[in-house]
Amino acid sequence: MKSINLQRTESLLLELVPEALSNLSDTRINSLAITAIDCKNGKYDATVYYDGSDYSKQEQQAINTLLAKANGHIKSYCLNATGWYKCPNFKFKADDSLEHNMKIEALFEQIKSKD
């Protein structure tokens, strides 16, 4: 179970990271849908999950590279918006849970139709 402070941090970052991305000029990442943020080690590390269902593995790797390059801008934006002394190190991953859920639902539909 995560502490309330850590959950608040994740919630705030879930608002700030998309705002920071929207300020970028690169159209491949400035409208990227952020689905979740998972903070570890207090506020020192955070994994940012984005909706990767529309992208191939190669495109996801390219997006991860672009996001890694924009990491400094995102951290600066978060620091300015919050007044924090330190901002987490962001790592970016495609969130494929939606795709998995859709596959599971399709399997349930197949099972249901066989009955």
Rank of each mutant, 00 (worst) to 15 (best):
K2N: 03
K2I: 01
K2T: 03
K2Q: 08
S3Y: 03
I4D: 01
N5T: 08
R8K: 11
T9I: 07
T9W: 01
T9Y: 02
S11D: 01
L12R: 14
L12Q: 13
L16S: 11
V17C: 07
P18W: 02
E19N: 12
A20R: 06
L21F: 03
S22M: 03
S22G: 01
S22Q: 08
N23C: 03
L24P: 06
L24K: 05
L24F: 09
L24H: 07
T27L: 06
I29D: 05
I29W: 03
I29Y: 03
S31D: 08
A33K: 10
T35N: 06
A36C: 00
A36H: 10
A36D: 13
A36R: 14
I37H: 02
I37Q: 01
D38E: 14
D38L: 09
D38A: 09
C39F: 02
K40I: 10
N41K: 11
K43E: 04
Y44H: 14
Y44C: 06
A46V: 09
T47S: 12
V48E: 13
D54K: 10
Y55R: 12
Y55G: 08
S56N: 09
K57T: 12
Q58T: 11
E59I: 03
Q60V: 07
Q61E: 09
Q61Y: 04
A62D: 12
A62N: 11
I63M: 10
N64R: 15
L66D: 04
L67N: 05
L67I: 08
A68E: 13
K69T: 10
K69G: 02
N71Q: 14
H73C: 01
I74H: 04
K75A: 14
S76V: 01
L79W: 00
L79G: 12
N80V: 00
A81R: 15
T82L: 06
T82S: 05
W84G: 00
W84T: 00
Y85E: 09
C87P: 02
P88Y: 11
P88E: 10
N89C: 05
F90A: 13
F90Y: 15
F90H: 11
K93N: 14
K93L: 15
A94W: 02
A94H: 05
D96H: 10
S97G: 01
S97Q: 10
L98G: 08
H100C: 07
H100D: 14
N101A: 15
N101Y: 09
I104P: 00
I104C: 00
A106Q: 15
A106K: 15
F108N: 13
F108D: 08
E109D: 14
Q110M: 09
I111V: 11
K114M: 07
